[in-house]
Design a protein around this nucleic acid. Structure first.
Lengths: 198, 198
DNA sequence: TTAAAATATTGGACGCTGTTCATTTTCAGG
DNA sequence: CCTGAAAATGAACAGCGTCCAATATTTTAA
């Protein structure tokens, strides 16, 4: 065939990412298949390569979508909350990972070839999540410590992420940890609290 | 052929795991191939399945080897160290991940089918690493707080792991973090320090 | 209106993967 | 030396990512 004009290029990209995200969320990165995505949107594998150019680009688009949904989830969960905002942020972080096990894991399962970096649009999604958390940490820190907010946020994000990873992959279960969210919150409070003294 | 007696069953397992570990370390989980392991030890794919029973079992054996090497590395790096042992433990944690990028990542890239748990021998390897760290945390805590050591160690391990993950997968680079080890150490000291007061 | 150029879509070909298992080869014990 | 058990093979299968010549459709130009 050719230029069927059922969908514009952008529409095609959109429905492929949506279907691909759903597929990823259902079967996980290990069982994900570009052919299956094509089938689900009523096209063939060749069209996927026409639109995305490569398998990696398709995965990046899907993972980018996951990041956007994650960000949305964080914002929604924080909206209107007056107290304990950091705690709610941590809960929302875990919540998304739990509700979208496979899609969430795919963000970390996928790796670009060694010497390449993700496209700017993807990096922006990561930073968007970072920016949300930074605002919360800022609010929790005293005015005199605002200059440390950025570095601290990177580090706290890593800590919470580590707890989330261990919760999701069974390491915590193996080691007898039954309240990963609480543990993460304790660590965050340890560090934020230290900057409140004096 | 048959019973070539070039190697006993145990020898065969051993050389397959060794070659498999090397292969994993070279190409990473995404490009790992059971056929390639067979080729490297001078056997064919069928023999791998005879010895390990399944692909998953082969991966578990290889990842178990990686965990054992990781533990060895930690012990070696801690041997004889008199001060700052927690700091040295963190450095050694990152060191191993850096020196064995792919094999280390494979521990977390691989996932057993949803309803299954890793064999006891594999769980023991994870606990062995946990036990090393617990001893260090114990030493850093005051006598009155020893009862909190285990839970705190699980949580600190998760924090350090999160920092290591972000360091290895480029998230820290993206966010402008240039000293992941130092950041991890700061967080550990925040939490350990909090229990030293009063 | 018709012919030509441009573009979208297809799907077969290729080499690779994990998995299975009938077949073949080899060794040990009688 | 022979036989039965064990070990090793490799072909077969379905699926994968990747590529690209062929085809179908739409747009443009004449």
């Amino acid at each position: 065939m050719g230029r069927r004009s059922d969908h514009s290029r952008e529409e095609l990209r959109e429905i492929a990412v949506t279907a691909g995200h759903r597929h990823m969320d259902e079967v996980g990165f290990a069982h994900f298949s570009a052919r299956e995505v094509a089938k689900r949107i009523g096209y063939t594998i060749g069209t996927i390569y026409n639109v995305f150019g490569s398998y990696d680009a398709l995965i990046l688009a899907i993972n980018g979508r996951t990041l956007a949904l994650w960000r949305d989830h964080l914002l929604r969960r924080l909206a209107g909350v007056e107290v304990d905002r950091l705690r709610h942020a941590i809960i929302a972080y875990f919540e998304f990972a739990t509700n979208h096990r496979h899609a969430w894991a795919a963000i970390y399962d996928f790796r670009l070839p060694e010497d390449t970096t993700p496209p700017e649009s993807y990096q922006a999604e990561v930073r968007a999540i970072f920016d949300i958390v930074i605002a919360e940490v800022r609010q929790a820190l005293p005015p005199t410590r605002q200059n440390e907010a950025e570095a601290l946020t990177r580090s706290l994000l890593a800590s919470v992420h580590g707890h989330c990873v261990f919760a999701m992959n069974g390491t915590f279960a193996l080691l007898g940890e039954t309240s990963p969210v609480d543990a993460a919150l304790c660590r965050v409070r340890d560090s934020v609290g230290r900057l409140m003294d004096e």
